[in-house]
Design a protein around this nucleic acid. Structure first.
Length: 483
RNA sequence: GGCGACGUACCCAAGUGGUAAGGGAGAGGUCUGCAAAACCUUUAUGCACCGGUUCGAAUCCGGUCGUCGCCUCCA
């Protein structure tokens, strides 16, 4: 079976074939950095992280570009709003670029914690003004854009394919227009490529049309084509960006180059709370920093991947805690596996797990438009089989157990980015904590041998209160960090 | 008003024609000094509702109800 991906452009799953054999160019709309990231951002960037990881596991050389938007997006409707960064910077009384830097760092901090691989190139919109102006000039040269009072607009009438991504027509937009009529535009659906900076606007650059700033969509066209070429394989982003953002990107990019812009458009769905979109306007968002403090970044990642990227994911404390318990189960299994490996002999038989079959199931799930919930189910299937084998008290060969360890490292670790190895694991005996706990365990073992249960439980309960959980097994007592 | 989705057990969530994955929670059991972990059993004759097509429908078609997204920055 080969990789199938759902292409929003055609509203169906399609066989994935890159433009150039063995190479994939991929661009994903990055965050606008004027506040901390929330769970919705996690859904998007974890999803695309897995897509990149899986493509690489298939042997593709992936060039992954993700921008940072630090200028140009307005708070309000298309023409009257103020720059979000500038507004927030005014509130915090700092320079907009300082604000952008602060939240760019915050963003990477959160993504790093969730094991999201950094993009290969992370271009900033403010650093690509020249490229954006060049596209606007090309469009004017072709008669597809026009200047009015220092602003430049794209003329949708010159691009008949406008609407091919979102399934809308210019007529629909005309009829349902909610934005106020902008007298400068020829048609209400025309969108700004460049905006004149009024007095007092901090973020401003010189241009052929006077001082101004770029429009809301042009940055992604400029930066994606600069690094990936005029036509590339995958463009990803949140569903809410399908229209108008991505529709406009197609219009201005294909208008300027005359070439097909993107082969596969991938859109992730959103995180909801009680069925409603998590977002700033409703005030129902939870920041990643808060979520990490409560459940840990790996649990948040696991929670996200237990739903399909094109499905909504309904958030609640109970839902995340349920995911956390499942994650803990996998982590426990891995920890037990490591303990068995340490004690295993070289020879002997294996636990009889058909890893080839499970690999095929896992691959089949991922090949079907990156079905991570099904792939995770395979992770649990292997865990159950392994635990069943361990319950029998038999000893298995080291190599057979190491093969399973390697299987998890590849499928859970490399492909899904789910780190199980260190979850809750006790420090190695050499560390300060490890030595201390080992001493307490040794003392408690003597106490237990004398059946002094009250004292024994006092040690266990006391350790539990400071985050160290003991487990008494036939082979001895082990410990792990607990919350 | 236009465009587009969704509705699967107590919760989260796969499944798009062949007889309901997985995780959590709950119940019972095994093991254990007791726990914890793990294992076993169990929990939707049923997939919003009503029709239709079919040998066969959660899956396809039509209708009804409900929820949501986009159309304004938004992952």
């Amino acid at each position: 079976m080969a990789l199938q991906v759902y292409n929003t452009l055609h509203r169906r799953k399609e066989l994935f074939t890159p433009q150039h054999e063995g190479f994939v160019g991929m661009y994903v709309c990055g965050p606008t950095v004027y506040s901390h990231s929330h769970l919705g951002h996690a859904k998007s960037y974890v999803s695309f992280d897995v897509i990149v990881r899986y493509l690489r596991s298939l042997g593709y050389r992936v060039l992954y570009v993700q921008n940072i938007t630090d200028v140009g997006h307005l708070t309000d409707d298309a023409d009257q709003g103020e720059d979000k960064l500038a507004r927030q910077a005014g509130i915090e009384r700092i320079h907009p670029m300082q604000l952008a830097e602060t939240y760019t760092r915050s963003y990477f901090e959160d993504m790093d914690a969730m094991n999201v691989l950094r993009a290969d190139i992370v271009p900033r919109a403010s650093g690509h003004i020249t490229e954006q102006i060049a596209i606007v000039q090309a469009l004017i040269g072709k008669g597809m854009a026009y200047e009015r009072n220092g602003s430049v607009y794209f003329d949708v009438g010159t691009f008949p394919a406008y609407g091919k991504l979102s399934g809308r027509t210019v007529e629909d937009l005309n009829a349902g227009a909610r934005v106020e009529i902008n007298e400068e535009k020829k048609h209400p659906a025309d969108f700004a490529l460049w905006k004149k900076a009024e007095a007092g606007h901090i973020m401003r650059w010189p241009s052929p049309w006077g001082e101004g700033f770029p429009g809301w969509h042009i940055e992604c066209s400029a930066m994606s084509m600069k690094y990936l070429g005029e036509g590339f394989d995958i463009h990803g982003g949140g569903l809410e960006n399908q229209f108008p953002h991505h529709e406009c990107e197609i219009a201005q990019s294909e208008g300027a180059t005359g070439k097909p812009f993107v082969r596969y458009w991938l859109h992730n769905n959103m995180v909801t709370v009680n069925g409603k979109k998590m977002g700033k306007s409703l005030g129902n968002f939870i920041t990643l920093k808060d979520a990490f403090a409560r459940w840990g970044p790996q649990v948040v990642r696991f929670f996200v991947l237990q739903s399909h990227y094109r499905s909504t994911l309904d958030f609640s404390d109970a839902a995340v805690e349920g995911a956390g318990a499942g994650y803990e189960k996998l982590a426990n299994t891995l920890r037990n596996l490591r303990e068995k490996i340490a004690a295993a002999a070289a020879g002997g038989e294996g636990p009889g797990i058909d890893l080839d079959r499970r690999t095929a199931e896992f691959r089949g799930a991922m090949d079907d438009d990156f079905n991570t919930p099904q792939a995770i189910a395979v992770l649990f299937d292997v865990a159950r089989e392994l635990n069943q084998a361990f319950a029998s008290e038999k000893n298995y060969s080291r190599s057979s157990l190491e093969a399973i360890d390697g299987w998890y490292a590849l499928h859970a670790g490399s492909m899904l980015g789910i780190t199980l190895e260190n979850a809750g694991a006790g420090e190695s005996p050499g560390t300060f904590i490890g030595s201390l706990v080992a001493l307490l365990i040794a003392v408690r073992s003597d106490v237990r041998a004398q059946k002094l249960w009250a004292l024994s439980d006092r040690i266990r309960d006391g350790l539990a209160r400071i985050g160290i959980g003991l487990e008494d097994k036939k082979t001895g007592t082990t410990w792990k960090r607990v919350s």
